[in-house]
Design a protein around this nucleic acid. Structure first.
Lengths: 210, 210
DNA sequence: ATAAAAATCACACATTCGTGTGATTGATTA
DNA sequence: TAATCAATCACACGAATGTGTGATTTTTAT
């Protein structure tokens, strides 16, 4: 890890782009291999420059940053993409992560923190601004934290529920647990009563956020 | 934010517990209000001490740390819990977050980073060790994102799919769209072919991540 | 030791779901 | 204009699911 980190910037605002360029180029261990003003330009240059990290704005003319991430990651899965944007709304965050971004910083991040985050990114981390991380973490809380704990499911019921939620057929659950399918049906019947649902689909919807 | 941050430690290993206690007590702006060796002890002391932050080990005698988080958060939702453990397996991570923990650090975290993370926690962030954050972020990446957009669903099929994903029965979809249930079945049959699935549950699982 | 809870299996019935095949109508397009 | 596609409806069959009721065994808790 004593090689310079090759960075490519995608940012349509000229001033911001050049600011980032100077910051990176002027920092030991970091090398800015390109600074693009559009997603299209970046996609063209990436095969030639093969950066380690892409700093990606979301709001771009033409193709947006999130779709650009999809393109980059499908062609070069080893490239780490860090979103760098002013948007902190949930939709952008989760679309970005779903698209394959592994970091998400807000533009207000101070320069030193940005460089630190880039380093963490190439070292297998996923740096996020505080409020971003909180939103990400909170998505794990809702379903299981509110409804399920008070449903008072027994350990066995929890176990069967987990198979149910994975889409296993009753007979498959029975095979996996070495019990009769009738037993599976009995358990699921009780689970449904406790969770106040009537179908497997409703269970799935409870796992998600409605 | 000029008040001292009140911290409660739950950690069964005596040496680690005292080490943390000394670190916190010896740092300006941090105040260790209690250091407990078990979850039960913590639950008893919390109402008296009302900490801002709880540092929680997972592997504890008696009640484990994750269940302890559930108890704490249900009684005191304003208390922030940071897991502090040697375990970095996915199950512990996601159970902890589901239980309501908002931070997750590994024990190898250096003291300065730990204090920084506690500060970030009370400021609305969700500090995580690098490899933890990466695992969390990766759950949002969907391989299904490839198949869905290009599945070439017609507008009507998309519409019916949306009802399907909401858990509507076939007959309910038919009523909502003023069409015959047979038509619904035909559409769904084609949708399943295009999405390469065999059950409604598999569709839901495609919507989710894995 | 006894009561309660959890886990197991059984049977019957009705509903829902997924598949296969086929047909009609209207709109789009080559 | 002919071919294609989207949307509609129909029928039949089997698989899977959900419900109700009841029973036995094991484990846990009081």
């Amino acid at each position: 890890m004593d090689r310079e980190i090759k960075i490519l910037i995608v940012e349509d605002d000229h001033a911001v782009r050049e600011g980032l360029n100077m910051l990176i180029s002027g920092s030991r261990g970091f090398n800015c291999v390109a600074a693009c003003a559009s997603a299209e330009e970046a996609l063209k240059i990436i095969p030639e420059t093969l950066p380690d990290v892409v700093l990606m704005d979301i709001n771009l003319p033409g193709m947006n940053g999130i779709d650009c991430v999809v393109c980059i990651r499908s062609a070069h899965p080893e490239i780490q993409v860090m979103m760098l944007t002013v948007f902190d709304n949930s939709e952008d965050i989760f679309k970005s992560l779903a698209a394959g971004a592994t970091g998400y910083l807000l533009k207000k991040t101070p320069p030193a923190k940005l460089l630190e985050a880039i380093t963490e990114l190439v070292n297998g981390g996923s740096p996020m601004s505080g409020e971003i991380a909180r939103k990400v973490v909170q998505t794990f809380m809702k379903p299981s934290a509110y409804q399920f704990p008070d449903a008072n499911l027994t350990p066995r019921e929890e176990e069967i529920l987990s198979y149910l939620a994975k889409g296993y057929l009753y007979k498959e659950i029975a095979n996996a647990l070495f019990i009769n399918i009738e037993t599976v049906r009995t358990h699921i019947h009780k689970i449904y009563q406790k969770l106040q649902v009537r179908t497997r689909t409703e269970v799935l919807l409870k796992f998600m956020n409605r």
